[in-house]
Every structure is written in C-alpha cells, then in structure tokens.
C-alpha cells in the first residue's frame, strides 16, 4: 500500500466503493465474532436463554486434555507450511524450465485443488483405507499393509501432508509460474551468462524476485490450516483415530454441534481468534516492510 502522506483525500468516493463490503462484513463477520466472545462467558446450547458463568468455560478448557491435543495437532499442520512452500517452488522451477509435458503436468496437478476439500476428503477416505488402491499397491511391493487411517502418527501426518502440501500444489504452481513469468527475462539471461545452474537460478533469481508472492503463499497456507480445513478433516478422519487429527477448528465443531456446548465452544473459538490475530499481525509486519 502506498504511503498516504502528502496526498489529498478522495472525498466520499472511497467509502461508497467500500460500502458493500463493509456492510456485509459488519453483519456476517463482526457481529458473529462479537457474539462469540460474549457467549464464551455463558453456558448456552446455541438457542434459548443463556446463563452467565464468566470464566468457567476458560477454566474447563485449560484443564481439558482435548483442548491441548487440538492445539498440538493444529501446530503440527503448521509445520507442513515450509515444506509446502519449498516443494511448490521447486516444482514450479522445474515447470518454468519448460520440461517436456509441463503443461500437462500443471493441469493434472491442479485437479485435487480444483475438486475441493469435501470431494477430496471423501475420495481419500476411500483411497487410504487398508483395502484401498494405495494399500493394494503397497502390499504388492512390500507384502504388508500401512494402516494410514488408524495409526495416529500416520493419520495426522497424512492429513497435514495432503491438506497443506498436496491439495494446494496445483494452485501454487499456477500462482508461482505467473509470478516468475513476470520477472524480467534479462535477469535470467544474465544469470545464464554468469553460468548459474538450476539451483542458483532458483535461489538467487527466481525466489528473491517473487518474494512477495512467496509471503502471500505462506499467509494463504496459514489461513487454510487455521480456518478452512474443517471440511477435509470432517470428510476424511472425523478427527480420529481417537483424537489424532482433532484440531482446534474440529474441536469447536464437536463442542458446538455434537455436544451442544456452544458457550464452551465459543471459549475455544476465542483461542482460535487469538491465533488468527497473531497471523494478522505477522501479515501486517510483512506489508509494512514491503511499503518501505
């Protein structure tokens, strides 16, 4: 964003342009969030009257093993973000070199992203079973079965890998290819004349030139992990086995809609809200640096 110092203002026009967005946000986001904070101090079923219990929900939450498990699981998903960024950039670089069939690769790798979390969650719930196609292949090769969906460490890592790395790869390729395409060709030519190989070109030219796109990608990944993965987990593992893939977001769902403890669920939501605030602050820092 541009620094506003020294500019005269544009009068009412900006507010008119912003009005539809702000009205929608006030109604569908700010109001629910405020209500959410209020209800976190109550005992409430999601309808009817509520009872003020102030900090009791928070006290219960801190003592709740499920809560800490969900924090741990969410944190584990976050760890996949660097991997996702590196893998996506690397494959983008392969494609950028115009390897044979790169357009076909780009198209096929985009399919999981295209189909979305609900479809992919259901598809993988069939695919990863012990009698699914993947395990049949593994059984042919090794003679044994890998119990992806019932071994905790495999289940959580499968969800993390699929959600953060695999399902977004296609979108990342397109996004980064476009960004790299915008880099001045002469920079690449200069690097080539300097005798830079693939890796040096990637780390010294491509990535630095699209730094802001990479940062955007990281923020995008955080949003997906914290705020969008519910549908995938719900259709793939339902938080199981046990609590192995039970994330903060999934916990909010279970507390509110399986146990009807909406007040208690709101306390979890407030924690999620605080995490979101942290991501936002990180994002704002990045933007400030970019402005300077």
């Amino acid at each position: 964003m541009h620094n506003r110092r020294g500019f005269e203002r544009d009068g009412a026009a900006p507010y008119v342009f912003l009005a539809p967005l702000l009205v929608l946000l006030a109604a569908f986001m700010i109001y629910p969030v405020v209500m959410n904070i209020i209800t976190s101090f109550t005992e409430w079923k999601g309808y009817g009257p509520w009872k003020w219990i102030w900090l009791a929900n928070y006290k219960t939450m801190i003592a709740d093993e499920e809560f800490w498990t969900s924090i741990k699981n969410t944190a584990l998903m976050v760890l996949y973000i660097p991997l996702s960024t590196i893998v996506t950039l690397l494959i983008t670089a392969f494609l950028r070199e115009g390897i044979r069939g790169w357009k076909v690769y780009r198209a096929i790798l985009y399919i999981p992203n295209l189909l979305g979390y609900v479809l992919m969650g259901v598809i993988f719930s069939i695919y990863l079973r012990d009698d699914g196609v993947l395990n049949m292949a593994i059984k042919r090769l090794t003679g044994s079965t890998i119990h992806f969906l019932i071994t905790p460490v495999l289940a959580i890592n499968a969800v993390g890998f699929l959600l953060v790395v695999f399902l977004h790869l296609g979108f990342g390729l397109i996004y980064f290819l476009a960004a790299m395409n915008g880099i001045d060709k002469s920079i690449y030519e200069a690097a080539l004349i300097d005798g830079a190989g693939f890796w040096r070109t990637l780390f010294k030219v491509s990535i630095p030139s699209i730094r802001f796109s990479v940062e955007f990608w990281v923020v995008f990944s955080f949003i997906e992990v914290f705020a969008r993965m519910f549908s995938f987990i719900h259709t793939l593992t339902q938080g199981g086995p046990g609590y192995s893939t039970f994330t903060l977001e999934y916990g909010i769902f279970i507390q509110a809609f399986s146990k009807f403890k909406v007040g208690y669920s709101s306390a979890w939501s407030v924690v999620l809200f605080l995490f979101c605030a942290m991501i936002s602050i990180a994002q704002i820092r990045l933007m400030k640096r970019r402005d300077e």
Binding site: G11, A13, P14, F17, L22, F230, C276, I284
Partner: peptide, 28 residues
C-alpha cells in the same frame, strides 16, 4: 484511493480473511 482510516479499515478486512467458518456458523 486516499481516505481517513484507510489502513485501519484495510487491516480489519485483512483480519477477517482469516476467520474460520465454524466460528461464525451459528450466528450467520
């Protein structure tokens, strides 16, 4: 465009982009 509270409003909008749907679902 240039207007008062531009940055604050923008940051507010940015903040919203991270909100999980489940947090809003009941009230929405």
């Amino acid at each position: 465009m240039r207007f008062a509270f531009r940055r604050s409003i923008f940051l507010l909008v940015l903040f919203m982009s991270i909100f999980p749907q489940l947090l809003l679902a009941t009230q929405v």
